[in-house]
Design a protein around this nucleic acid. Sequence first.
DNA 1: CCTTGATGTATCCAGTGGATACATTTGAGC
DNA 2: GCTCAAATGTATCCACTGGATACATCAAGG
Lengths: 190, 190
Amino acid sequence: MPKSDSDQPYHHGSLKEAALAAAVARLRKGEEELPTVRELAAEIGVSHRALYRYFADKDALKRAVAGEGFALLAGRIPVGADLTALSVIDGFLRFAFDEPSLYRLMFSLRSTALLAEPVPGPQVRRVIGLATQAFDDGAGEVAVRNRVFSAWGLAHGLFDLWRAGALRAASPELVYDFIRARILESGLVD
Amino acid sequence: MPKSDSDQPYHHGSLKEAALAAAVARLRKGEEELPTVRELAAEIGVSHRALYRYFADKDALKRAVAGEGFALLAGRIPVGADLTALSVIDGFLRFAFDEPSLYRLMFSLRSTALLAEPVPGPQVRRVIGLATQAFDDGAGEVAVRNRVFSAWGLAHGLFDLWRAGALRAASPELVYDFIRARILESGLVD
DNA sequence: CCTTGATGTATCCAGTGGATACATTTGAGC
DNA sequence: GCTCAAATGTATCCACTGGATACATCAAGG
């Protein structure tokens, strides 16, 4: 039975992008979890099975959304002369606090095997690359990498402790200040 | 009336404890996720709905399991003269690497409102209490608390980055060594 | 005994991710 | 233009999940 009324661009065009955009928008709008495949498809106006042309399963969709998240995160990191260790940390932290649901999803992916590529590979590497550049003060390659991961670990860890309820505070702003203070205190950035 | 004698179970005496034990055992045995309520009930030999007498919903069960996890973690922390900042960190890290699934569940609970009690409250507070004691070197209360959370955040954060795939390595042992080195290097423990 | 509240069971339900078979578009190549 | 095969979307099914409601059964206490 052919659809009679919807003569408009019933055919979508770029379902994949639309689905990713819708999913990301949902998370940024405050929803804690990724919507169901059906909900997402309905929002775009297609049958739920249509999305499976572009994502092998729901986990693949989740990974793709995480990829978008890391791309957004990379976009928060300044370029050029503004790319400093502190600005990287600030961009990272602000992103975590601004987009908590998306942030959580980005780090909720179970790691696969040892040495396996991070799930949204390229985007994660880009973030690490930018951070490494920002932290590079001429010290050895290993020393720089260590500082990058220490700072990243500290920021991510404290944020996650707060998120999980182990660190309590009266407002997100206070948590942000607390984390930033701990990072500055650590001497990892100046 | 609650039974007071040592239970000689007719069908089952203490379903709640049995369910928690079974769930924890599953995670410690390597399964990544909490089993379904049905699977858990079947393992104990009761109908799946029986568990709902003791847990309001699956999330309540999850929280209770997390509580068991934090209790186990507390058990890894030495007592008496062996309670030092470094031994706390070591106990914590070893726990994370030894019981990754349980560890992940413990920190997967979504935080509720601001200032709300951490979900498995008492057990978490006990861990924080022990750590605070270990880190107390006579400096001010605030300084000690800051060091506790910095060290905890760093350890947890680096572990989680690895778990999520952002930090790659050839073996868990190397990751453990890496994290431990970063913590020692931070000067937060000596 | 025999009621009574606690505990466990039977059975149903809507919703989910996923599979398979079918319908519709779209765009090459003639 | 027209045809037809590949690409894309749909209809419909499935097993399974967490959860609800109604009923059965047990363990005492009067």
